[in-house]
């Protein structure tokens, strides 16, 4: 960790974000600050509100209260405008454009950085061709960067799972973001692919892009992030460096489950009470499913 990073200015700041669906409070007063050039992790059990929080950050949802600021400027509640302002995202369940080629997917990511009016699109003048050529070059560079060079003409749907995740990242990077939001980038990946993803995210940080990662894999998060926030039932439970979060007893209880001895003791107790009814150690775990 170099010293410059510690004094970095805050690039993305969410303050007091509250999201209420009907009577359900999905997020309650969640704040997060992302310093420039850092990787911030967001962990929490299923249903804790991680993806809802992402949707508030990217303008897909309008938060009931609270605000999101990018470099001090409040963001509008419109995904297209948020992307233009400099926030790009990937989705938990991959959402590529399945029937477009790999290259075309990335070119769609270039959409807001291209300068083509409807008339230029119609007549394909020299300016159009220059713009198009630049976009292709840039897109191919990005495919090279994520390690997908050579399959650019393949249909996105036909890519292996891990490559689809990487393509989604390339597409997000094509929008030239200041902040990249990754929603479970390693879900369903094997250990090798997970390690590749970790290296890729480090390389993304090297280019000056700040990253927020949602992930279930705590080992992955603790080895990747500069700071980690733990979200439980819509509220931030703990925030701090991986070492601090890892050792915090509340986190261990809320997210990782209670210590094994305690769970076993509980189960034994329950078994004593209910006789033959007990259903094994899983019944005592609170974060299950």
């Amino acid at each position: 960790m170099n010293a410059a990073r510690h004094s970095a200015e805050t690039v993305l700041e969410a303050s007091g974000v509250t999201m209420v669906f009907g009577g359900l409070t999905a997020l309650n007063d969640v704040s997060l600050s992302l310093p420039e050039g850092r990787i911030v992790g967001l962990i929490g059990p299923n249903g804790a509100g991680k993806t809802t929080f992402f949707n508030c950050l990217t303008g897909l949802y309008t938060p009931t209260r609270g605000a999101v600021r990018l470099r001090g400027k409040e963001l509008p509640h419109d995904p297209a405008k948020v992307t233009t302002a400099g926030i790009a995202r990937t989705f938990q369940n991959i959402r590529l454009f399945p029937n477009m080629s790999v290259l075309e997917n990335v070119l769609v990511g270039r959409h807001i950085r291209m300068r083509q009016g409807p008339l230029a699109s119609l007549f394909h003048g020299p300016g159009f061709r220059r713009d198009e050529r630049r976009a292709r070059e840039k897109s191919l560079e990005l495919l090279e960067f994520v390690g997908l060079r050579g399959v650019e003409d393949e249909v996105a749907r036909n890519l292996p799972y891990g490559d689809q995740r990487r393509l989604e990242i390339a597409r997000a990077l094509a929008t030239e973001p200041d902040v990249l939001l990754l929603d479970e980038p390693t879900a369903g990946m094997n250990p090798q692919e997970t390690e590749d993803a970790r290296q890729l995210i480090f390389r993304i940080r090297e280019t000056g892009i700040s990253v927020v990662v949602i992930e279930h894999d705590t080992k992955f998060i603790f080895s990747l992030c500069d700071t980690v926030s733990v979200l439980v039932q819509g509220e931030v439970l703990v925030e701090g460096s991986p070492d601090v979060v890892r050792e915090d007893p509340r986190v261990i209880e809320a997210y990782l489950g209670k210590p094994r001895e305690e769970v076993e003791a509980e189960v034994a107790e329950a078994a004593a009470h209910h006789g033959a009814d007990h259903q094994g150690p899983a019944a005592g775990r609170r974060d299950d499913a």
Binding site: P79, A80, T83, F91, R95, F97, L107, H111
Partner: peptide
């Protein structure tokens, strides 16, 4: 490409700006 992207996945298209 924007049209085709909308056809393929409108939310993802919006997320691309």
């Amino acid at each position: 490409r924007a049209w085709i992207a909308i056809r393929e996945d409108e939310d993802a298209a919006r997320a691309m700006g």
